[in-house]
Design a protein around this nucleic acid. Sequence first.
DNA 1: ATTCCATGTTAGCTTTAGGTTAACTCAATG
DNA 2: CATTGAGTTAACCTAAAGCTAACATGGAAT
Lengths: 232, 232
Amino acid sequence: MQEEMKDAKAKILLVDDEPDILEIVSYNLKNEGYQVYTAENGEEAIKKAKKKKPDLIILDVMMPVMDGIEACEKMRRISELDHTVITFLTARGEDYSMIAGFDAGADDYITKPVKPRVLVSKVKALLRRKDNTAPAASNITKLGDLVIDRDQYKIIYKKEEMILPRKEFELLSLLTTKPGKVFKREEILDVVWGNEVIVGGRTIDVHIRKLREKLGDDSFKTVKGVGYKYVK
Amino acid sequence: MQEEMKDAKAKILLVDDEPDILEIVSYNLKNEGYQVYTAENGEEAIKKAKKKKPDLIILDVMMPVMDGIEACEKMRRISELDHTVITFLTARGEDYSMIAGFDAGADDYITKPVKPRVLVSKVKALLRRKDNTAPAASNITKLGDLVIDRDQYKIIYKKEEMILPRKEFELLSLLTTKPGKVFKREEILDVVWGNEVIVGGRTIDVHIRKLREKLGDDSFKTVKGVGYKYVK
DNA sequence: ATTCCATGTTAGCTTTAGGTTAACTCAATG
DNA sequence: CATTGAGTTAACCTAAAGCTAACATGGAAT
């Protein structure tokens, strides 16, 4: 029950020049537990956005003083709003404004006229999406100046991104699952090659060598007669 | 084969405590080709709604066990029913129940007594309206100069709108769900083709090639022996 | 029906990155 | 100083991806 709370207090900035719309929409959003701020033009919107750092900004395209597109562009340059979702409100059929909107850095758009219910569910969806996007649940191992990203099949070594061939990556990946532990040659073959395949005796060495070339000699220690280990 | 059913077969959940009404109304709706489910009280209605995810729910206000208002409120909290239209059946003159109904999240109301013909045309209208509403729940991903609209099955690339063949679209759609992540060929087959279908080993490549042609070579990186990834 | 066209799949060939091997060297150990 | 296991190198091999054109299919248009 309490995890429903997290987006319950999401802050939303609603920007439209028609007070009626502001009122009806903000009423509905507040009903859902959101904290709603409003602005009647782009300028005001930017001020409030800076101050409140909302999670979501709903921006009407057509507005006096500063239109939605312009406001959006400006807001996108404000780094505090990096994680803010911006969506446009646009009249149906105005495709050009949709494209312009994306160009200005919007994340989505909602077409008018819109029913409160629909808008609310849309807002929910957007905030949900935001949550999912942020904490990319990737499986990453960090060891000193080496970062191993198993999702992206890449590593970062001394701030430098590099991609390794598959076997090298998997070998490294294995050794670093337990730094310091000595992996027997047999173990390595099992995991990296699969115990059906039979490869010659020097194959592992060659791969170790390549890793040493790329990641520095001293990280890979040989334990004669047994196998290899990775040390920071 | 299972999707692509137009609203000819729209699912309607009809809720009323009077069996006579259930029968006569559902007869008429079925005649029009709708798939009709019935329930005799709010509790039952919620259960069936969850299971069947109807497009439209017609809800009598006055019911034993759980009345329409309460049932409506509960159903509105079920996210699978976000796009379901809910309409009340209310006795003429009961204005209060109409207001309460909207407050509970209903989309419309129908006054009793109602002639079958009228009801049917009302239902048609509601479902038509629903179709206009639904695409507002768009599901859009924006990545640099690429916008993917999963609802409209179209993309915007460098300000240019284009539609991709289904497989290409789905492949792109998958890869972009997690930019940078390497999707294994097997994963891709599972998601885009479905793991029952068996396609030749070169099929994915060809689709990747087409995407590269259209969206630029460098966005699609090959990770040999593993799969592909999308990078901005 | 018939034609036409877009999409999807396949076969078969080319290309290449990646992986393996052989042959030799080196270092450690007893 | 012999033996054994590991290091090194470059040649070689192969599985995997690229590519192209042909074929298959299904839906739309006529």
